[in-house]
Amino acid sequence: MELTFSQVGTEREIAEVAKLAADIWREYYVSLITREQVDYMVDKYQSVPAITEQIEQQGCEYYLMRAEEVPVGYMAVKEEEGRLFLSKFYVHKEYRGRGYASRADAFLEELCLRRDLSRIWLTVNRDNASSIAVYEKKGFRVVREQVADIGGGFVMDDFVMEKEIAHRP
């Protein structure tokens, strides 16, 4: 199945991402954090107003992943100090295990090469063993741990992972 990556910019695309986010987060993250924290984080970081602000005011780029025109996942990235921050990367449950993470990783590496960026970095919940395993398989390594207060009485207890990008001669 062909997988495409299109940069999100329209209100309709932002709404598609927000719907995907709500579905994915409520399905996946309740096994790692409380339902209350999931709801808080979806509203604060993945709602239509939050995504719009991230794109328009914070320099984030969202990419919608589609398989045969069906939205199957999304990513958000931001350039920071010669590196690419992978802020968000999520695939809907029904489409996991189809190699989309490998294709997304190749897309991100190509983005880094075109922009002359040296690394991709991300944060991942310390208890999210399956995602950590995927990232390690793609060449990421844990560089440190961090606990971030995100308000509402909640924290994100994460590993910071990083992957060096080998530039072509």
Rank of each mutant, 00 (worst) to 15 (best):
R119E: 14
V30R: 13
Q46H: 12
I51Q: 03
L111G: 04
I51M: 04
V38K: 06
V17Y: 04
E36S: 07
V72D: 07
V42N: 09
T10R: 04
L20W: 13
H92I: 00
K78D: 04
G151M: 05
F85R: 12
R115P: 12
R115I: 11
F159C: 02
E110Y: 07
E36W: 01
P71W: 14
I132L: 03
A133W: 01
G153C: 09
N125P: 03
E164R: 13
T34Y: 03
K44F: 01
T123Q: 09
A148N: 02
R168Y: 07
I150S: 00
F154A: 02
R35H: 11
L20T: 15
T52A: 03
V70H: 13
M161V: 10
D157S: 00
T34M: 07
D23R: 13
Q146M: 06
E136P: 02
Q7A: 06
G9M: 02
K78W: 00
S87H: 12
S31E: 12
K137S: 11
M1E: 11
H167F: 05
Y28I: 04
L113K: 15
S47T: 03
L3A: 10
I55E: 02
E11V: 00
A166Q: 14
R103G: 11
V155Q: 10
E68I: 00
R83K: 15
R12P: 00
R119S: 13
D105M: 15
Q57F: 07
D157R: 03
E109R: 14
C60T: 04
Y74I: 12
A166E: 14
E11R: 10
V77F: 06
V134R: 02
E69A: 14
R35W: 00
Q7S: 05
V42W: 11
V134G: 05
K88G: 07
D127M: 01
R98S: 08
R144D: 08
R83C: 11
Q37V: 05
R168L: 11
G59S: 04
S131A: 15
G82C: 10
G139W: 05
M156P: 01
R119A: 15
L108H: 03
D149E: 07
F85N: 12
R114L: 13
I132T: 01
A101Q: 11
R83E: 15
V30T: 15
I14G: 09
R141T: 09
I24T: 13
M75N: 10
S31R: 09
A22I: 00
M41G: 04
F107C: 06
R66S: 14
R119H: 15
I165G: 03
Q7E: 12
I132W: 06
Y45K: 03
V8Y: 02
V91F: 06
R35V: 15
R119V: 04
T52V: 01
M156L: 06
C60S: 09
D116Y: 05
A18S: 15
Q58D: 08
F154W: 03
A166M: 11
E16W: 10
E69D: 15
Y95V: 12
A104N: 13
N125E: 01
D43K: 13
R98H: 13
M156R: 03
F85A: 05
S130I: 02
I14H: 08
H167V: 01
V124K: 04
G73Q: 09
Q58R: 14
E79Y: 00
R35A: 14
R144H: 06
R83A: 15
E110A: 13
I165P: 04
E11S: 12
Q58P: 00
V143E: 13
A133H: 08
F159E: 01
